[in-house]
Design a protein around this nucleic acid. Structure first.
Lengths: 159, 159
DNA sequence: CTTTGCGTTTGAGCGCGCTCTAAGGCGTAC
DNA sequence: GTACGCCTTAGAGCGCGCTCAAACGCAAAG
């Protein structure tokens, strides 16, 4: 995909569009989710913010709390490389899916710890998925009750 | 469900009359809401907390922010009836499914506004459901990417 | 040379959703 | 009587996840 001047927002929209479909986790999707491959090797915080859709404030915050390490150039400015960018995008993905920062942090610790933590990571993700599924279930229950009320009582009064 | 020949007006009048008579929320609905059907008519805050699984603090908080109105007995103590209980359980269900309090509040305002807001309520719920589904999807995306990384790259380094 | 503009830092502030404290009233048990 | 325990209130505090402010550095444009 020619991601040349695609803004973060457009990319999000593209991703959102994919969500409508029946979820093929194929090369297309992975490509969509990956960073554009024409990124400069080193980016300023403003560029990183633009690419990720986060604010510079948030990027600094993420660094402060240890979610990502970022190098400095000779003037002391943050210099984001692809690794850092990829990491931030990944963090964002987890966050957006509702994972608390603490858990994300834990996950990344596992990543740093090495390959052998794969199973733990998987378990962590599956736990998270289970939580979200539970949420969905809870919502459907609420919906069911609501629909019931609306159809049976005409949507009156107390839930 | 057969006891539901109570019309919307009747039920609403019962509320408007500042708790005039014993209006039965029917057993099926109670069941749907997971409330035991052997509840006392009036409960203290401790009993209500016990039944709902919330703390007394939270119950007072919910009342303070207007999510539910609770009567007082002659000593000034809160006295939860089935209606209040059902409402609290409903609120809890929405909250647990991730709906912000503000939205719950809005929803309940619509309920109080009367029967004609049914469609709006439905829309609100469907919007919420869509959001949750989006969350689930985001998670699955994250999971997929993670699994992909783990299987393809051996779970190394940067996400 | 000054203005502008983006960068840096530390640290404070905010909205949410509780959660708890303080100060006090009432009622039963010893 | 008084201790205990549950209730009341208004209001403060907290953890999360940002979000912004203050004070300053550096560097190219006019």
């Amino acid at each position: 995909m020619t991601t040349t001047e695609l803004t973060a927002q457009e990319r999000w929209q593209a991703i959102a569009a994919h969500h409508g479909g029946p979820e093929p986790i194929d090369a297309d999707l992975l490509c969509l989710l990956d960073l554009p491959d024409d990124l400069p090797e080193r980016m300023t915080i403003a560029e990183a913010a633009d690419v990720t859709g986060l604010t510079a404030h948030t990027l600094r915050y993420y660094e402060r709390i240890g979610l990502v390490r970022v190098e400095r150039d000779d003037t002391g400015y943050r210099s984001y490389d692809r690794r850092a960018l990829a990491r931030i995008v990944f963090v964002t993905r987890l966050r957006v899916s509702g994972m608390p920062i603490g858990t994300v942090s834990h996950y990344l610790d596992l990543v740093e710890e090495g390959e052998h933590t794969g199973p733990q990571r998987l378990a962590l993700m599956e736990e998270h998925r289970a939580r979200i599924k539970q949420q969905l279930h809870d919502l459907q229950l609420a919906l069911a009750v609501t629909d019931y009320k609306i159809t049976v009582y005409g949507g009156t009064a107390e839930p």
